[in-house]
Simulated scan of single mutants.
Amino acid sequence: MIKIYAPASIGNVGVGFDILGAAIIPIDGTLLGDCISIQSSNTFQFNCHGNFSDQLPKDIKKNIIWQAWNWFNEIIKKKIQISITLEKNMPIGSGLGSSASSIVASVLALNQFYKTNLNKKELIDIMGKLEGNISGSVHYDNVAPCYLGGLQLITDDKNHLTQKLPIFDNWLWVIAWPGVTLSTSTARNILPLTYDKEKCIKNSRNLSTFIHALYTKKSELAIRVMIDTIAEPYRIPLIPNFLKIKDAVTKLGASTCNISGSGPTLFSICLNFSIANKVKKWLEKNYIKNKKGFVYICKIDQLGARKIRI
């Protein structure tokens, strides 16, 4: 049997809409991500369990795991019957790369099980296209960090689609999912079709300065330019009281408060555990809507997707 774990991820990372993505892991050791197990079988079987398995489509052909299996059958020109088990630990429509987590885990598990020996570029290409089946457009800001770990910059270069960036080890990332979902397509459709020149220049300046600050180890500068001018201003109405929440957590000492991916998950960067814990407790009291919601203090997951011992 093969078992692969693929971590949660923060798309956009504030300043890099559709360009930056970061893999995260809670500091308490919780595996915040999906797991895929594969073993031989006489017939195709798909089993699913986990806290969020009830959110998956009932029609198996609409399930991204089935689509990944079908993709590999086409690669090898043969339909191999297997048993696939998905541990769906990630809420759908949360802004934490739920679909990417399932896609990355299944593609890597199938590649190992089928011994197709696809290279990194080929694997990322499949992952991005499968992600596009869900969101409506091919994008890599969740699948790349989920697969490769760390903070990833998505490029337009055909030979090097993604580049790993340095990140500050002392940053603690407090992520809060309220327990309600927000459709990625809804959050994307609310954005304008065109942007004025000044806004584009400001975004380019902030992103360039952010990457410069990472390489020159200027933590305060990096935080000051983590400003989302492309998506956040238009998505504020989708997240009730967002500006009040942002103001409250920064007053507690958080350095940032941004929307993770399409939302409704929020993330804050804190520079020490004491502040991170205060922010965590405040968000648990004021942002979580039900028992399914959660708040974690996280670090960047530098490993990305990996085998789990069975």
Rank of each mutant, 00 (worst) to 15 (best):
D54T: 12
I134F: 10
C35W: 01
I92F: 10
I124C: 05
I27N: 07
I82Q: 01
G179D: 06
N12H: 14
T162A: 15
W177N: 10
I38W: 07
P57D: 10
N89H: 13
Y296K: 12
I269C: 01
D157P: 05
V104I: 05
A6K: 02
G136H: 06
K88H: 09
L20Q: 04
K285C: 10
N203C: 10
P237K: 04
E232P: 09
C35T: 14
I236L: 04
K218P: 05
F46K: 08
S102N: 09
G179Y: 03
A100I: 07
Q39C: 12
A100Y: 01
C200R: 02
T43R: 09
S219C: 14
G132I: 02
N133W: 05
G16L: 04
G97K: 06
V279N: 01
G50S: 10
G132E: 06
M226F: 12
P192I: 01
S208W: 10
I75R: 09
I103M: 01
Y296R: 05
Y195T: 00
N258A: 14
M1W: 03
T265F: 07
I84Q: 02
T181H: 13
G179H: 00
S40N: 14
L266E: 04
G128E: 00
H49K: 13
A176N: 05
G97I: 07
G21H: 07
S185G: 06
K115W: 00
L266M: 06
Q112D: 14
I223K: 12
K129A: 02
G149P: 03
R188Y: 12
L238C: 11
S101G: 05
S41I: 09
R306N: 13
H212Y: 14
Q163P: 00
V13A: 02
L31V: 09
T85D: 10
I175V: 15
Q112I: 11
N286A: 11
V15W: 08
K79N: 15
I10W: 04
I227C: 08
G293E: 04
Y287V: 09
T194D: 01
K78T: 12
T209M: 08
A22E: 14
E131W: 00
F17W: 11
I126V: 15
G261I: 00
S255E: 14
I211K: 02
L31A: 11
G149K: 02
I239K: 05
